[in-house]
């Protein structure tokens, strides 16, 4: 039985990785101008690589210099950012659903998104948008710290209290945000744009930043077995030898760190962190050792395609619009199909 499941999940993982690689190549090719895959490949691979490594311009080694510029300077960072942000949100969503034992939880559930939005709005209104990613990151992680601190009594922070405190704090932040938006005047449009999320301004600098998402995801995968036990409930986890309070702290802060980076890069994109873990749990089962990596890859692919569609066909509409527009009906479809079985 177990080997059967193992083999099936292995196949799922293989399909996902292949789909990711294929999506990556296709997404580089597709865009307002379609670029044939053949022009990605340098005519002289070794000198192109050595030029890249020594920091020189590798363009001369490619068949088409314009195509090189579009693919490697514009599209590649954007594609990689979409993959990493999608993966990060999916991983953080998986962690939150496991912690709260609720497949309705998402990375933003404990005030992360409203904290980030508040931070971004402060940067936009008072600093003209300077340091916006920093403010968004600080808002996201700061909100989590605050929720945790408020929910803790006698060294314990029960998940129910965390959840409720998160909801309360979200509302409080939203109120301040609404006030800022109300009094923002011309920059209101900018705040709204940021909140819907998108990859318009992504460059290579963001990619180096988003490598931190991978580091965070790695920590989550290392703790996957503990999360399995914790997802049975806090008391059961105590009985089975999980250091529950410490582990919850790790889980919350790593997740909010990942989410904070994702939000700093692309704004608060919704639905990825909710639907991906849910769908992948239906496919590979609830074991977080399998669920984390597969949900990450699936979340990356999902966000990559949502972004490719918007920049190719929809005049760069905020990608958050697409994820929710496609994701919500799909989610309902899944729920209805599942309840029939």
């Amino acid at each position: 039985m177990l080997t059967g499941t193992g083999r099936r999940n292995g196949a799922v993982a293989l399909v996902l990785v292949c789909a990711m690689l294929l999506s990556l190549v296709l997404a580089l090719s597709i865009g307002p101008t379609t670029i044939p895959v053949s022009s990605f490949v340098p005519s002289d691979l070794s000198s192109a690589l050595s030029a890249l490594l020594s920091g020189e311009n590798a363009a001369p080694f490619f068949p088409d210099a314009t195509a090189y510029l579009i693919v490697y300077s514009v599209r590649l960072p954007r594609v990689l950012a979409a993959l990493l942000v999608g993966a990060g949100l999916a991983a953080a969503g998986t962690a939150m659903q496991g912690l709260f034992r609720n497949s309705m939880a998402d990375p933003y559930i404990i005030g992360t998104s409203s904290g980030a939005a508040l931070g971004a709005a402060v940067a936009i209104v008072f600093l003209g948008g300077m340091f916006l990613p920093v403010f968004a990151f600080v808002g996201a992680t700061g909100a989590t710290f605050l929720v945790y601190a408020l929910a803790t009594r006698n060294g314990r922070a029960p998940v129910e209290t965390l959840l409720l405190t998160g909801v309360a704090l979200s509302m409080f932040f939203s109120a301040i945000l609404s006030f800022l938006m109300y009094s923002a005047g011309k920059s209101l449009h900018q705040i709204v744009y940021w909140m819907m999320g998108g990859f318009w301004t992504v460059g290579w600098g963001d990619i180096y930043l988003s490598l931190l998402i991978i580091a965070g995801c790695f920590i989550l995968i290392v703790y996957a077995k503990d999360l399995n036990v914790l997802s049975l409930g806090e008391e059961d986890a105590v009985h089975l030898g999980v250091n529950v309070e410490t582990f919850k702290r790790i889980l919350l802060f790593v997740s909010s760190f990942i989410t904070g980076i994702a939000v700093a890069i692309a704004g608060s994109i919704g639905f990825i962190g909710l639907i991906t873990p849910h769908v992948m749990r239906l496919v590979v089962g609830p074991d977080h050792r399998v669920l984390f990596p597969t949900a990450m890859v699936a979340g990356g692919i999902f966000l990559l395609w949502a972004d490719t569609i918007t920049r190719t066909f929809l005049g760069d509409m905020p990608v958050g619009v697409i994820t929710a527009f496609v994701g919500a009906p799909f989610f309902v479809f899944l729920l209805r199909r599942r309840s029939k079985v």
């Binding site: 039985m1 177990l2 499941t5 496991g98 034992r101 609720n102 497949s103 399995n228 997802s231 049975l232 749990r281 089962g285 609830p286 074991d287």
Partner: peptide, 9 residues
């Protein structure tokens, strides 16, 4: 148990 772990899991 909220998630569909198998009995053996």
């Amino acid at each position: 148990v909220r998630f569909s772990y198998t009995v053996k899991d």
